[in-house]
Design a protein around this nucleic acid. Structure first.
Lengths: 200, 200
DNA sequence: AGATAAAGAACAAATAAAGAACAAAAGGTA
DNA sequence: TACCTTTTGTTCTTTATTTGTTCTTTATCT
């Protein structure tokens, strides 16, 4: 079933919300975000998404928390959460968007998509404008590529090396050097599980 | 059935849009893009494309929605034709397989998928085991990455440079050198339009 | 002349929005 | 618990906007 434009916007917003907060938004909140002023109209869009099998109907009990995206479902879209660059804060997308991602490129565990800015990982085959699929997690094995939050302010994509009392973030670019941090300054947000690129 | 110039422009635009956004454009949007100011005229072009079998008519229900391109593939899977490596014959897959490919990674023109063997393109961000999406074509612009058939026997993925009386195939690996061939020995099979990788 | 293209008007159906009215939670207070 | 208020989802009807379709007329180009 093909979604209309509005329905797609609503769905993309829900996907993104799902990653930023735990509780699903209320109809009014969705309305506010999309600039609609009628709950009733929004309800109709939600109903269409339910019919399309993209969101779960609210539990027969209702209220407060609502629609849940079908986890583990057969849904091939993931939210585009923003852009990730070396040494700069994660820049969020202005409008909620989603990106089609083949199932074999993600793990099914609430992955999301970032678009790469810059060449800091070029030697690992990750180029400017590539899309990367991130699986949220709190820890990682050494030498995995992760999205790491530095000092609660900047997110970068780097290969991580955790030593006793020290965390090293390795760029993959011969012109750049690894950076060393105290472990407290680094928070792992997720690990790289997939990557996509287009040439046209 | 031969397309007129305008029809071709419209068709190209539809293909392009279909892979960047997931919604086919409205008549007005196509008009705006091509500098036409009459929906009615555009509708006639679309109708011609439908007659030519190049696009799908809007849903059995009619209006309100957008036109949907779709030449052949109804779903988002492309055939996996084999493996491509530097300097070795294309190895076909033993069993026909297909790979899920997001729409924005291919052009809609009968693309297919190959899996990369080897590191000959690593400096261009194409690594061992990556999937590449190839659009069949007979010629290419210089410095595009193409799948080229050498001496009717070996297929390789290389960046191509066509000079008068000479064709250069450039690997992207500092340990390898460009190879020069007489033009008769090289047949272009397709050009690289997309790439995918997984890390788990 | 004949094919191709464009403009624009008029129309119909799909899509979207607004708003009212109501009922089922949720949350608070005594 | 009992009672009340607020929030939120649901169901309507009504209206507006967008978009595809069908025409007629005119222009352009070989």
């Amino acid at each position: 079933m093909q979604l209309t434009r509005r329905q797609q916007q609503v769905y993309d917003f829900l996907l993104q919300q799902h990653h930023e907060t735990d509780h699903a938004p209320t109809l009014d909140e969705i309305c506010a975000h999309l600039g609609v002023s009628s709950r009733g109209s929004m309800h109709k869009h939600i109903q269409a998404l339910i019919d399309a099998g993209l969101v779960e109907a609210p539990r027969h009990k209702h209220r407060g928390i609502r629609l849940k995206t079908q986890s583990g479902g057969h849904d091939d879209r993931l939210p585009l959460m923003g852009y990730i660059a070396a040494g700069q804060p994660l820049e969020a997308v202005s409008e909620p968007e989603s990106v089609q991602v083949p199932r074999h490129l993600h793990t099914g565990k609430d992955c999301y998509v970032l678009q790469v800015r810059g060449d800091s990982m070029m030697d690992d085959g990750i180029l400017d404008e590539d899309w990367v699929i991130i699986e949220p997690c709190n820890s990682s094995r050494n030498h995995e590529i992760v999205a790491a939050l530095v000092d609660h302010s900047e997110v970068t994509l780097k290969r991580i090396e955790q030593k006793p009392g020290e965390v090293l973030l390795h760029p993959a670019n011969s012109r750049m050097q690894a950076m060393s941090f105290e472990p407290e300054r680094i928070q792992i947000q997720g690990r790289l599980v997939g990557q996509m690129r287009r040439y046209f």
